[in-house]
Design a protein around this nucleic acid. Structure first.
Lengths: 292, 292
DNA sequence: ATTAATTATAAAATAAATTTATAGTTATCA
DNA sequence: TGATAACTATAAATTTATTTTATAATTAAT
């Protein structure tokens, strides 16, 4: 059975017009007609009901079922191609959310260099949401991800690296700096500086806000953590970040949250379940697991 | 790309001999050579290292990766064929472990008849283990299953129907019949009659035995629940079954187990995640869910 | 009624896969 | 060492599969 036929078929299911499908694949229209007939013969079934009275193309139940399987098959093929391409290029592509990169990556560069991995390693910096998508699509093979609940995905293998609480970051000039711990509800009158787009931080922040029934006031948003830290340093606002954010360069204090149900920032190492791991990928995974 | 090539390829990975693969598919040997070359060209990679020095056929990393994807693809194809076959025969095949069948099935026969389903329904009676395998392989589409832990399987959708405790079944002539509740450890000197092969009951029984540090004495084993009930009825032994086993025809009492961690018999309704449900399958699922 | 849009069919052409025949490589064994 | 067996590769011929071309048929729209 030719997978080209499945491609024609899924396309026809989607756009429901033989001629347009032919156009899409740059073939003549009878090609599609015969391809569908071939599939119908192969599976001994009717895939479409050609109702020209009402000018509709109805998909049969068998057709729906084959559609599901075809999508999986075509996806497996593109995954295989992408995976093999990277194997041949001896490319190691690692997804890294910026916050995780800042905290962990410098730590293990030496180990990566020692293991002869660093020179072949390309990192892709992006948010955890788009990195998850990229792994699914086969654009990258391996990623560190941040999340506030353990990563559960049928198609992925995720192993937890570490859990860190979220903390409140205040200038040492701020009245709160005399405390070491604080409850989120005590921050009701504070001004926050916060991430513009970071999905995980937003999730955690929203969760705590809801648990405490108030909307914290955010006076400035940026995607740049250093910019935010500078603002906190000048005591223009306070911050809410996972504990792994580094304060060495600033006169800033981290306060622990006392809230019982406070979310945690979970760092996980993730790859596709059906990815055959190359020796260098295994090496990379081991370096990451052993040094983080 | 022809899926036949993937079949040749996976077979070659497994038996590592071009001629034998050709024999297996009843084609000539050059067919396999050219098929593999085709795949290598298609994916722009080397799949095998033909080491004739050592008379071995080594699979490359790309080959390993393609092997994983090929297996999934070929499996999807056979699943599709089986699913479509049943759709065309308008066949509704339901897997039923005998114990569940005895308890639930008679209850809902009327509803199934009313919904015009009963006449098209074929039941497959087998243990939960082989029914799970049958669903995976596409031999059946839908099954009730018994288990003592919730069913978690990436490829399946399982919805819990009911949880029932396991009970101790004793003759009303038995000294224990004066109690309503009992701890498992108090049964250390009792004689049990038990299932020969029932995996779920064996699991539960073993678990309780281990928790209580003794090996219960089993004096007779059978796969026939009625036979076992007759023996209990005659006070030749006591039984350990899920509470759903019916005692109406016997002079038998069910005792509740007081053990805190006593296992439970979970009845679930299960089907493949990527199964496109036909209208009559949805009907059947609804009847089962609403009436159990 | 004419036209446009659509899908189907048949024959021809092209492309792809398989077989046949044979060559080359290596291991085995007398 | 040379003959043989087991295995894989290559090339040409054959067969099979797919696509195109040309055209017919159906229906909706104007």
């Amino acid at each position: 059975m030719n997978t080209k036929d499945l491609a024609y078929f899924t396309c026809l299911v989607e756009i429901k017009n033989f001629s347009k499908v032919a156009e899409h694949f740059k073939v003549q229209q009878p090609t599609i007609t015969t391809a569908i007939k071939r599939l119908e013969k192969e599976f001994s079934t009717t895939l479409f009901i050609r109702d020209r009275k009402h000018n509709t193309l109805e998909i049969t139940t068998s057709g729906q079922q084959l559609f599901k399987r075809s999508q999986i098959i075509l996806n497996e093929l593109t995954l295989a191609q992408k995976e093999i391409d990277r194997i041949n290029r001896e490319q190691l592509v690692l997804g890294l959310p910026p916050i995780i990169e800042n905290h962990y990556f410098s730590k293990i560069c030496q180990e990566l260099a020692d293991a002869q991995i660093l020179n072949r390693l390309t990192t892709v910096e992006a948010g955890s949401v788009s990195l998850t998508k990229a792994i699914h699509e086969g654009t990258i093979d391996l990623s560190l991800l941040g999340s506030i609940t353990p990563i559960k995905d049928d198609d992925l293998i995720a192993s937890e690296i570490e859990r860190q609480p979220f903390c409140i970051y205040v200038s040492n000039k701020h009245p709160l700096a005399k405390y070491n711990q604080i409850r989120f509800k005590d921050l009701v009158n504070e001004n926050f500086v916060f991430f513009k787009q970071n999905f995980i931080h937003n999730q955690a922040f929203t969760q705590l806000s809801q648990q405490n029934n108030f909307h914290p006031k955010i006076i400035f948003k940026s995607n740049d953590i250093n910019m935010l830290m500078k603002l906190i340093n000048r005591n223009l606002g306070i911050g809410f970040f996972t504990r792994i954010v580094n304060t060495d360069a600033y006169d800033i204090k981290k306060l622990t949250l006392l809230d019982a149900n406070a979310p945690q920032f979970i760092t996980s190492l993730v790859y596709r379940r059906h990815q055959f791991l190359t020796p260098s990928q295994i090496q990379l995974i081991n370096v990451l697991k052993n040094n983080l």
